[in-house]
Design a protein around this nucleic acid. Structure first.
Length: 902
RNA sequence: GGGCGGUUAGCUCAGCGGUAGAGCAUCGGCCUUACAAGCCGAGGGUCGCAGGUUCGAAACCUGCACCGCCCACCA
């Protein structure tokens, strides 16, 4: 088989993905054997378009999933999408706004139909994009959070929580978005420091004995004040506590109360209390039994309670109130003041605290279990420091407001009785009120926070509340891979719900992905216009290259900066692999059949060495993946493929391949063996190119029951060591020697075609200085030693240098080094060779080596080191010192030959 | 106000107790028939600052500085 000159990513991507799907490779079967490995995708919003966060997330999941599948695990990856209540509703509302409509004009049913239509048109888009990335999800198990079975799970959980007293309905102060006209949870409010003002307002005492001045950032809410509070320790106001003040503009009499929550240092030390419009005030108000007067409506306009200000917007009301106070001489002063203002995370509108009836989840009992599960290691975070974030939130979290005044979502399974106002909570529509037997029941209009259904995702998608085979086999899931930004929204809530509903954690491990930034390290945001579209870079560099780059940059605990040069490097890597494949195929073309394996003892040193390095790579990759160190795994593959297999083994194989006979057969076998294995190793990272190449090499692989695709081939496992320590050292020396030769050749300006002479001295030949000790070598000694050395051509190729090793040092367990012959130097000198430059370079290197060498010797002679260091460490240092001594001596010799000794 | 990350070569980042590394960029030499998206070399770092622990610290501890992020009801 032939490979085309270059790799065409696009064609390969489509071809292989389609085949994998058709053959059902990604479809899980709980009845099949194998330890389960399961993972649920963080369901992207149906409104979503693929962005780099998804690309990273999905790539890492796919790396793990493909690896586990190839390792023979019973693997399930559940895909799907989230209905994303408020986000999707906003998108469709914007769309109908273009037609001059709003949702109220359309009505609930028609609006919902519009959203469903929208989802039919665009809901598949993001999933299609995940397929393009190569995601090996089980598409037969695709779910949508509003699917009937998932909705059933939602109702079931709601009913159970309600039965257990963990869901309640109450009139509370909640966050309200006046534009979306819905309640929000604490998490959906983004606090931003904003420049505002602190207004000092005088409240006259009813008894005429003066006034008390309060400081506020929101003068318009004074219309709803029901008290003024001071600190009980504040001597300035002690006499006023219990007195009454007249609320300006409105005229209501309110009391001055004492409460420890008041900070006497802030403002005037007296604070107006508006229970219906401030969270602190609300708590204090309930403590003191104060009236809760709401002065705003749900659209952020002043209501009847605001008296003359009714109908004004908040901003207008503020201006009017301030002007009126000023006119009445009750405004003492205005100071600039910076403070946090909450904004709706969806539409950025300033959020108002609003008093209303809402449904809440009582968090404390659920949070307690969720905390314990991580504390005792049933679920582990990677990197671990995210556990602190998780704990910090759960330990302080308030009850969760789950009702939303939206239309797109799971309608709350509660029915209000028109007779007694009681809500009957049930999974199915009840026929009569559970309290008064009334039959006129109307379902609650509100829907649930979109995160309520997301919280059930790990088990609702597996069939819960039914006791399905999937649920038994795949719950708890093995791993969750997601971003830090939804640890609170999603991870913590899944933990709580999983533990509540199934009494077990929803996942064993949580891997928190880094944030993807642009090449300047900036966060990608629409407003900055620096958002990189993954589809575009996949087009430019190939999906494999994008995946590999993301994996390579996915370091635990640090943001990820995606730069073009990295992508280019990965593309070059793909090209390198492609060309290596072409080389291999070129040398196999007359053998379109399995190449029989060759026993290790019949393989040459180079062959055993590369198989040994393969082992090493397999170990490295496997361990790194197990530890979720994707960058380490990617680097290990890269190193092996490029710098060991391509740089060395392919070069070393050229001679035997040319030679024919047994050595050729051995080389062919090893080429195929290595390539097969490295493609399997690579497959989770670069699924398309690995499949493309593997298909051409497949006919040559000698393995029983070889599968049709690498996607389901057995993942490599490390074999027993193939090399003795001695041989490993010998190969290291071969490489070091060749590098030394190249370095010297380069230094002297040899062209690749030019021959030169090298001397190789096996360590066993002994001679002066052969013990590796330090110290200079005299010219006499050196000449004597030189006589014992064998001259060889200073090679052009790596293959030749291996030959040097084989011939020059029969037992290659010796130090090999190079020295130039005088004659060659003379030739170069005649051509204008710069001796001084060469000598300086050698001197510099010599100084470095000498310094290191002496450092080691000092360490070895240090009594403390001798007393305290472990034997293994001592041995290591001794060996290193010996090597350094040798290198040092050789550099001295080389320098001497160049006339720079002494 | 709490908490969490980061600070290593020009750039982007690994390393986290025993000679400071990679990719890209730079410089020099090569079209050596798998690959010029390549090959062979070279230069470049007091590992943010200050103390401490250790025979030995980029790594461990304690402060500090700067950058970034998260949480928080000071009106």
């Amino acid at each position: 088989m032939e490979l085309s000159k270059t790799f065409e990513p696009k064609a390969a991507e489509e071809r292989w993905y389609q085949q994998w799907i058709e053959l059902g490779y990604f479809t899980a079967d709980p009845a099949k054997p194998g330890e389960a490995f399961s993972i649920v995708i963080p369901p992207p919003n149906v409104t979503g378009q693929l962005h780099l966060g998804h690309a990273l997330n999905v790539t890492l999941q796919d790396v793990i999933v493909r690896t586990r599948r190839m390792q023979g695990r019973n693997t399930l990856w559940v895909p799907g999408t989230d209905h994303a209540g408020i986000a999707t509703q906003n998108v469709v509302e914007r769309e109908i706004a273009k037609e001059g409509l709003n949702r109220h004009q359309l009505g609930r049913t028609a609006f919902e139909q519009r959203v469903w239509k929208w989802r039919e048109a665009y809901g598949g888009r993001i999933l299609h994009q995940l397929r393009m990335l190569g995601a090996s999800c089980d598409w037969s198990r695709e779910h949508f959070t509003l699917d009937p079975d998932l909705s059933r799970a939602v109702n079931e959980v709601f009913v159970r929580l309600h039965r257990d007293g963990l869901i309640y309905r109450d009139r509370q102060l909640i966050n309200w978005c006046p534009r979306c006209e819905t309640a929000l949870s604490d998490l959906e409010v983004e606090h931003r420091d904003t420049d505002g003002h602190l207004y000092y307002i005088k409240y006259p005492l009813v008894d005429g004995s003066g006034a008390i001045t309060v400081a506020t950032t929101r003068p318009e809410t004074m219309l709803g004040d029901t008290a003024v509070a001071v600190s009980p320790d504040d001597v300035r106001y002690r006499a006023m506590v219990g007195k009454r003040v007249r609320l300006p503009l409105i005229g209501r009499e309110i009391e001055v109360i004492a409460d420890a929550a008041v900070d006497s240092q802030f403002g005037t030390g007296a604070v107006k209390i508006t229970p219906a419009h401030d969270f602190n005030d609300f708590v204090m108000g309930r403590r003191h039994g104060l009236a809760e007067i709401s002065v705003m409506d749900t659209r952020g306009r002043m209501n009847a309670e605001a008296g003359p200000y009714q109908g004004l917007s908040i901003k207008e009301a503020r201006e009017a109130v301030v002007n009126d106070l000023k006119a009445q001489g009750l405004l003492e002063k205005i100071e600039p003041h910076r403070h946090a203002v909450g904004a709706c995370s969806r539409c950025d509108t300033t959020v108002e605290p609003l008093l209303s009836f809402q449904w809440f989840v009582k968090i404390a009992p659920l949070a307690e279990k969720a905390i314990a599960a991580v504390r005792d290691g049933r679920t582990r975070f990677h990197p671990k420091f995210w556990e602190n974030t998780y704990f910090g939130w759960l330990e302080n979290v308030h009850d969760w407001c789950i009702s939303r005044q939206l239309w797109w979502g799971h309608r709350i399974p509660a029915w209000r009785c028109s007779r007694c106002e009681h809500f009957t909570v049930a999974a199915e529509p009840p026929s009569r009120c559970e309290k008064c037997e009334g039959t006129d029941l109307i379902q609650e209009e509100d829907v649930l926070d979109t995160w309520f259904s997301s919280a059930l995702w790990p088990f609702s998608t597996l069939g819960w509340p039914n006791d399905t085979a999937d649920l038994k086999r795949y719950y708890p899931t093995s791993l969750l891979i997601t971003g830090f930004d939804i640890i609170f929204f999603w991870v913590a809530r899944m933990m709580m719900m999983g533990l509540y509903c199934l009494d077990d954690v929803p996942f064993r491990d949580v891997y928190i992905t880094p944030l993807v930034r642009d090449q300047h390290g900036k966060k990608m945001t629409k407003s900055r216009g620096n958002v990189v579209d993954p589809l575009v870079i996949m087009e430019d560099y190939g999906t494999d290259a994008v995946r590999f780059t993301l994996a390579q940059l996915a370091v635990q605990g640090r943001d990820l900066i995606l730069a073009d040069d990295r992508l280019a490097a990965s593309k070059a890597f793909a090209n390198k692999i492609w060309n290596a494949a072409r080389f291999v195929m070129m040398n196999l073309k007359d053998a379109p059949q399995p190449i029989p394996s060759v026993k290790a003892e019949r393989l040459g040193l180079a062959e055993r060495w590369i198989l040994d390095r393969l082992n090493h790579a397999v170990k490295g990759v496997t361990e790194a993946i197990d530890a979720y160190q994707f960058n380490v795994a990617a680097l290990a593959i890269y190193q092996f493929i490029w710098h060991e297999f391509c740089d060395w083994y392919i070069e070393l194989s050229k001679e035997p391949l040319k030679a024919g006979g047994e050595s050729q057969a051995a080389a062919r076998y090893v080429l195929v063996r290595c390539f097969d294995q490295l493609l399997r190793l690579l497959h989770p990272f670069m699924p398309f190119i690995s499949e493309e190449i593997w298909q051409t090499i497949r006919p040559y692989i000698d393995e029983r029951n070889l599968p049709a695709h690498v996607a389901i081939a057995k993942f490599p496992q490390a074999d027993a060591d193939l090399l003795s320590n001695e041989e490993r050292v010998a190969m290291d020396h071969c490489i070091a020697a060749t590098e030394a030769i190249n370095s010297l050749r380069s230094l002297l300006g040899f062209h690749p075609g030019q021959q030169s002479t090298v001397f190789v001295r096996p360590l066993s030949s002994g001679g002066a200085g052969g013990d590796g000790s330090s110290g200079g070598m005299s010219t006499d000694n050196f000449a004597a030693e030189l006589a014992a050395w064998k001259p060889y051509a200073m090679t052009r190729t790596k293959a030749e240098s291996l030959e040097i090793l084989a011939n020059g040092a029969q037992r290659p367990a010796g130090m090999v080094t190079t020295v130039l012959e005088w004659a060659e130097i003379s030739v170069k000198a005649a051509e204008g060779f710069d001796f001084e430059k060469a000598r300086n370079a050698l001197r510099k290197k010599l100084a470095e080596i000498s310094a290191h060498h002496e450092q080691h010797l000092r360490r070895l002679s240090n009594p403390d080191f001798q007393a305290k260091a472990a034997d293994e460490m001592k041995l290591q240092i001794e060996q290193r010192a010996e090597e350094l001594g040798g290198q040092r001596k050789l550099l001295e010799a080389q320098l001497q030959l160049l006339g720079g000794a002494g």
